[in-house]
């Protein structure tokens, strides 16, 4: 069972968390201004990388906070966790 590094609570077992999908997918500020295609991208397109993946976690049965983390999808190792709104610590634009 994974240990998920909550920035506020430290490493906690995965059963305390709810997975939140890929991070850094920003909801368009004015949805009416984007095309159907762009909106569809926002809704459904995800990078699904092999390697470093920036993703959201929700510490539901803990502090109740959302945060972002970098996890290697091959080794399942977390390399960082960081607050919502902060940039990716590895500097990558998108995974």
């Amino acid at each position: 069972m994974l240990l998920v590094p909550c920035p506020w609570c430290g490493p906690r077992p995965e059963v305390e968390f709810r997975y939140g999908g890929e991070a850094h997918i920003v909801r368009p500020a004015d949805p009416e201004a984007v095309t159907d295609e762009e909106w569809g991208e926002f809704l459904y397109a995800r990078t699904n990388p092999k390697g470093a993946h920036a993703e959201r976690w929700y510490h539901l049965h803990g502090c109740g906070r959302f945060f972002n983390a970098l996890r290697d999808t091959v080794s399942d190792r977390f390399t960082a966790s960081y607050e919502i709104g902060a940039p990716r610590p590895d500097g990558a634009e998108k995974s």
């Binding site: 939140g20 959201r56 929700y58 539901l60 906070r65 959302f66 919502i84 709104g85």
Partner: peptide
């Protein structure tokens, strides 16, 4: 509640 928290914490902070 989880959905509301998601928007509150990540979109409309």
């Amino acid at each position: 509640l989880a959905m509301m928290e998601d928007y509150r914490q990540t979109e409309w902070r």
